[in-house]
Design a protein around this nucleic acid. Structure first.
Lengths: 177, 177
DNA sequence: TATTGTTATACTCTATAACTATA
DNA sequence: TATAGTTATAGAGTATAACAATA
């Protein structure tokens, strides 16, 4: 029948669960705070915050989508929502007529500012309260490397051509329906 | 009102972003694999996996909900979906007529088994490939502490709701029995 | 032809509230 | 009264494919 599953050891399992559970709980708490304080979803906050960190508070749709992994249409949906609320504007790019430049409005900045203190408070209470200085440094280092690696690694079923190594390992049990 | 709360320093910000981004990318990849390999969402996988680790493959709805933080109605929805697919059964509890016991079927176990190798492969490729042994140990330790702290910390603006305080029962944070 | 973005659409998931029934 | 679970329902979010306009 099925070959014995390539096992993770207890430490790996612990790291995986802790990562998923901690990030899930943290994100959940942060989402609640953002919703209450500024009626923003996490994605919307990410978009506004990205714009706030950009020169002139502006960014092209495509560049925004690169930072916030979702689909183009999903970004369009969010941009429309934010524009209706007056938090961003969308204007055709002068350089490339195909492009749309999204820009943070003053009101967008205001909402961002009004939400930020509570945001930081949640992080302090939930994440940093339990961690030492060196813990935080280690987290930033380790997870930063992990994130950079993931960014460089193509989705396994998308490229599908180049396998990395170990031809003995057969990872894809492709079982539709 | 307080003007500005203690801002986050660069390291804290780095740790926060790395945590959110890494977990987001990892979860996204895992969800894709679960969908392709077994047509499962992450929550559904968590439910099946939780049952798979439970005695007799059974658990009460409420106990399942405690492990998977969502609302009761959300769990009902998922349980119905899984039951329609024949992956779990739902039967009234003999002990307490109000309760419903969810049990993993053989087919549920089969799907779980068919999905698991690819699941592990994604973790190996995306998460563990970039990390040393001691990195993984540090992650498990630090994030484990963070998670435990979050579990103990009540939501800030929410009144404490359901709490099960049976002193003899349920003192274990992560892996019961 | 390739890229940028929008629209249309369908579907999944989650949350709230009202409800039933058991304890 | 409190707890266990379901139902009804509504809304947000996401993904895909077809599409238009520009490069």
């Amino acid at each position: 029948m099925s070959p014995s599953p390539p096992p993770l050891d207890a430490t790996q399992l612990g790291a995986y669960f802790a990562l998923i559970e901690a990030s899930s709980m943290l994100k959940h708490a942060v989402e609640q705070q953002l919703r209450e304080a500024g009626d923003l979803s996490y994605v919307q906050f990410q978009i506004l915050a990205t714009l706030g960190d950009s020169p002139a508070g502006s960014r092209r749709m495509t560049d925004l989508a690169d930072g916030v992994v979702y689909s183009r249409s999903g970004l369009t949906y969010q941009a429309q929502t934010l524009e209706k609320r007056g938090l961003v504007t969308r204007t055709p790019s002068p350089d490339d007529e195909r492009s749309v430049v999204v820009t943070l409005t003053d009101e967008g900045r205001a909402v961002l500012a009004s939400v930020f203190p509570g945001h930081v408070a949640v992080l302090d209470d939930l994440l940093f309260a339990a961690l030492s200085r060196s813990d935080v440094e280690a987290l930033a280092d380790i997870l930063g490397r992990a994130r950079d690696h993931m960014r460089r690694t193509p989705p396994r079923s998308a490229g599908q051509r180049r396998r990395r190594k170990t031809p003995e390992e057969d990872p894809t049990p492709s079982r539709p329906r």
